[in-house]
Design a protein around this nucleic acid. Structure first.
Length: 182
DNA sequence: CCCTGATTCGC
DNA sequence: GCGAATCAGG
């Protein structure tokens, strides 16, 4: 993956918006956060005021959310109602977060888990899926808006980091509480 | 241990 | 120029 003008422009924009290097790497896809940081330095973009810590605002707005069940298959499986339209956003969110999460909230009305990079969905079709694209279904399977997340997914999971958390967290929680009961 | 950016240095 | 490894910090 090379630094095309288009990708450099996106990098500049996202960096200026205050996204962290790892978030930018996730959204560009195909590069590590180190690569992003390296490029930022080579471009002589302004660094963050303080190293480490949370220069990038990344706290999810608290909102009531139904925890989704893991979809059994990728398509044509009735899911617990996942809104496919934008929902009204609570006030108090930062501009940066609004922009970063806008796309994901259009299709998924879930609270992002802590410490998980929220990818920007590419909203791809079935025929566009590869081993490295997130296969989380979006929209209504019976309607034209049905598609897949399509964000960069690790080869260890059918989902991007964000949706992997969505898919497996309920299972993990169930296991944990079962163990707690003994 | 999670995360953050900064720096170095072999490629 | 690139980015993994490493460092330093919250």
């Amino acid at each position: 993956m090379n630094w095309t003008d288009e990708r450099v422009e996106r990098l500049k924009k996202l960096w200026a918006e205050g996204l962290s290097a790892s978030q930018i790497a996730a959204q560009l896809g195909g590069v590590s956060r180190n690569a992003v940081i390296g490029k930022v330095h080579r471009l002589s973009l302004p660094g963050r005021a303080k190293a480490g810590g949370n220069a990038a605002p990344n706290r999810a707005q608290k909102r009531p959310a139904a925890v989704p069940q893991r979809p059994a298959t990728y398509a044509a499986q009735p899911r617990a109602a996942a809104p496919s339209r934008p929902v009204s956003r609570p006030v108090g969110a930062t501009m940066v977060k609004e922009e970063v999460e806008a796309e994901i909230f259009e299709a998924v009305d879930y609270v992002p888990a802590k410490n998980v990079v929220v990818p920007i969905s590419r909203k791809i079709g079935l025929t566009e899926l590869t081993e490295r694209t997130c296969k989380w279904p979006m929209g209504d399977p019976l309607k034209d808006d049905f598609c897949f997340c399509g964000a960069e997914a690790p080869d260890t999971s059918p989902y991007c980091k964000y949706h992997a958390r969505m898919a497996y967290q309920p299972v993990a929680e169930r296991r944990r509480s079962a163990e707690a009961r003994g």
